[in-house]
Simulated scan of single mutants.
Amino acid sequence: MDLLEYQVKNVPPSIYYISNFITRDEESHIIKNVYSAPKPKWTFLSNRRLQDYGGIPHEKGMIPEKIPSWLQVYMNKIDELNLFEGKKVNQVLINEYLPGQGIMPHTDGPIFSPIITTITCGSHTILEFWENSECRTKVCDLLLERCSLVIIKNDMYSKYLHSISEVATDVISSTYANLCNCGIKYFINDALKRETRVSVTIRNVPKILKIKLS
């Protein structure tokens, strides 16, 4: 796959967006397995809940744990893109966002290889990018469709913040930088109602501790 075909234009380097990266059947497979996980697998935050697979990242290093086979399938799909300079992905963060839930502007930080790859399941969302400054000027918005993959690297990973607003409906805007990359034709001012979204962020943690969890 030639990633240049999927590069989002007119934004700082670099964002790649692949609509229909997975099928609807694969999406259903992911959602089924996420919600089949036992309750202790979930971490509950004030505005959402999440699951970690492969280990919990820490600045001193991640203690690796076995990846379930259903999830390894999608990690292999990411590895086939050869994004991490020969390194294999080894950690997955799954977030559940109910309509009206989001996440504050942030960066993922230096404990990860400087690339984010995220598969979106269940619902679209709008990913917002901001200058990392007191002024907090918006850089761009991305429409993340169901079954899509977004890849964020270079300056867009390290220099800019990303966030999701806590709204239940989005109105299509010309500020959405990837409209021409989307799998569906959208029109300005179209209203899209959010449903429950499951995001699957697959990445590499370079620093691994030798202890393993069974």
Results as ranks from 00 to 15, higher is better:
residue 108 D to W: 08
residue 31 I to W: 01
residue 108 D to Y: 09
residue 8 V to W: 01
residue 77 K to S: 08
residue 26 E to W: 02
residue 121 C to T: 10
residue 127 L to V: 05
residue 47 N to D: 15
residue 92 V to Y: 00
residue 146 R to E: 14
residue 103 I to W: 03
residue 211 I to M: 08
residue 129 F to V: 15
residue 106 H to S: 01
residue 37 A to P: 05
residue 189 N to E: 10
residue 97 Y to A: 03
residue 138 K to M: 11
residue 65 E to Y: 04
residue 147 C to Q: 01
residue 59 E to S: 15
residue 48 R to M: 14
residue 137 T to I: 12
residue 40 P to W: 11
residue 194 R to T: 04
residue 168 A to S: 05
residue 71 L to K: 07
residue 183 G to H: 01
residue 93 L to E: 11
residue 84 F to A: 13
residue 203 R to K: 07
residue 148 S to W: 02
residue 78 I to D: 05
residue 93 L to W: 00
residue 202 I to R: 02
residue 71 L to F: 00
residue 211 I to P: 09
residue 77 K to P: 11
residue 146 R to G: 08
residue 196 T to S: 02
residue 23 T to F: 01
residue 193 K to M: 11
residue 135 C to A: 15
residue 39 K to A: 13
residue 12 P to A: 05
residue 86 G to I: 14
residue 34 V to N: 13
residue 202 I to T: 06
residue 110 P to R: 05
residue 183 G to W: 04
residue 37 A to W: 03
residue 36 S to H: 05
residue 69 S to A: 02
residue 62 M to R: 01
residue 129 F to C: 15
residue 137 T to P: 14
residue 53 Y to M: 01
residue 14 S to C: 03
residue 4 L to Q: 07
residue 79 D to E: 12
residue 63 I to R: 06
residue 179 L to Q: 07
residue 97 Y to C: 12
residue 180 C to Y: 08
residue 92 V to T: 04
residue 78 I to E: 03
residue 41 K to S: 11
residue 119 I to E: 02
residue 131 E to V: 15
residue 187 F to G: 12
residue 152 I to D: 04
residue 68 P to E: 03
residue 134 E to N: 13
residue 108 D to Q: 04
residue 77 K to N: 04
residue 179 L to C: 10
residue 114 P to F: 11
residue 160 Y to A: 07
residue 136 R to T: 14
residue 191 A to P: 12
residue 17 Y to F: 13
residue 121 C to D: 03
residue 138 K to E: 12
residue 69 S to W: 00
residue 211 I to V: 13
residue 125 T to F: 09
residue 86 G to K: 05
residue 129 F to N: 14
residue 46 S to G: 13
residue 71 L to E: 07
residue 127 L to M: 04
residue 4 L to Y: 11
residue 4 L to T: 06
residue 146 R to F: 08
residue 5 E to S: 08
residue 189 N to G: 06
residue 23 T to S: 03
residue 34 V to Y: 14
residue 202 I to V: 04
residue 98 L to P: 13
residue 1 M to V: 11
residue 97 Y to H: 10
residue 5 E to Q: 09
residue 137 T to R: 14
residue 12 P to Q: 06
residue 56 I to M: 14
residue 174 S to R: 09
residue 164 I to N: 10
residue 16 Y to W: 10
residue 159 K to V: 15
residue 124 H to F: 09
residue 103 I to P: 02
residue 5 E to Y: 09
residue 167 V to H: 09
residue 97 Y to K: 05
residue 66 K to W: 06
residue 125 T to M: 10
residue 61 G to V: 14
residue 41 K to L: 06
residue 102 G to E: 12
residue 69 S to F: 01
residue 7 Q to R: 06
residue 41 K to Y: 07
residue 119 I to L: 02
residue 160 Y to D: 14
residue 155 D to P: 06
residue 85 E to L: 06
residue 78 I to G: 03
residue 87 K to D: 13
residue 177 A to K: 01
residue 169 T to G: 08
